[in-house]
Design a protein around this nucleic acid. Structure first.
Lengths: 144, 144
DNA sequence: AAAAGTAGTGGACAAAGTCCACTATAATGC
DNA sequence: GCATTATAGTGGACTTTGTCCACTACTTTT
């Protein structure tokens, strides 16, 4: 069991990291998209032909909120909706060419951001960083 | 320099961790406070006699937004304001007894949350977790 | 003493998110 | 097959959260 000072250190890291992620997430939005919109678009890009409900549940968003976002996306010609052939209540979402272009942009920016973040570290330190993060990932997420 | 798959892994971790932190942050709010309000209260507790402007700049909040939060806090008797004796435009903030009590509650909850998060890990794994996080903290924040 | 800057507040608004009700279809129990 | 129950998607109405701007009262700079 961890002692109090270790727990405090973890909380401290979480606080700082929340802030960092917040800043990074905001910056990705030098696109016309809000953070949540960005997540939605990426979610669709991960797997074309996702339904709105899948997007909403994966991102833990309100379905009506999601619906509105998707409507905006359609209006701005980022995605298109096509009727599902297995469930006629539902629709399948796919990225338009513009949508794909924007995803690529977001993607490039995100990659660049990570590089920028690590730019002050030596190669050895970067590896160390990666290793430490892989450890956390494994302990928190992958194992489950 | 990290390769693309390593960068992707980092981004992936960031995405998952953002989500986790989001959930954890929301949960702390089984108090009457929103997340930002909680941060503000903690910020004051870190160092009594902070001024509103210090709080706002430390947390990167809009000062008018901060002002309103503080007003609410005062109304709910969580903090009190006393005129600064060095700058008569400014005020010094301090926690009331109720405020301190709430801080303690938030604090306990946060500690518990970390414990819960790690509860499925063995002691060795918890140490490993702590170590990995300390590495990240050092590379990202402490060094600077 | 004038000019420029800063602390704090409030009005007005925008953005983000929630809640509820509704329609249309699907799935389930019988 | 038919009634019941559940689910996908949408929209209205609202709350919460956060931003922008202008203003007052003071401080600092020159």
């Amino acid at each position: 069991m961890l002692n109090q000072s270790e727990i405090s250190a973890i909380r401290n890291f979480n606080r700082d990291y929340t802030k960092l992620l917040g800043i990074m997430n905001k910056k990705v939005l030098n696109t016309p998209l809000s953070w949540t919109e960005g997540r939605v678009l990426l979610e669709i890009s991960f797997n074309n032909d996702k339904t709105p409900i899948e997007v909403a549940t994966n991102l833990e968003l309100d379905k009506s909120y999601t619906s509105r976002i998707l409507k905006r996306f359609e209006k701005n010609d980022l995605i298109s909706k096509s009727p599902s052939d297995t469930d006629s209540r539902s629709v399948e979402l796919s990225l338009t060419a513009d949508g794909q272009k924007l995803v690529k942009e977001l993607d490039d920016r995100s990659n660049q951001q990570i590089k920028d973040l690590l730019t002050d570290l030596s190669t050895a330190e970067q590896k160390q960083f990666y290793q430490a993060m892989a450890t956390l990932d494994n302990l928190l997420f992958t194992r489950k």
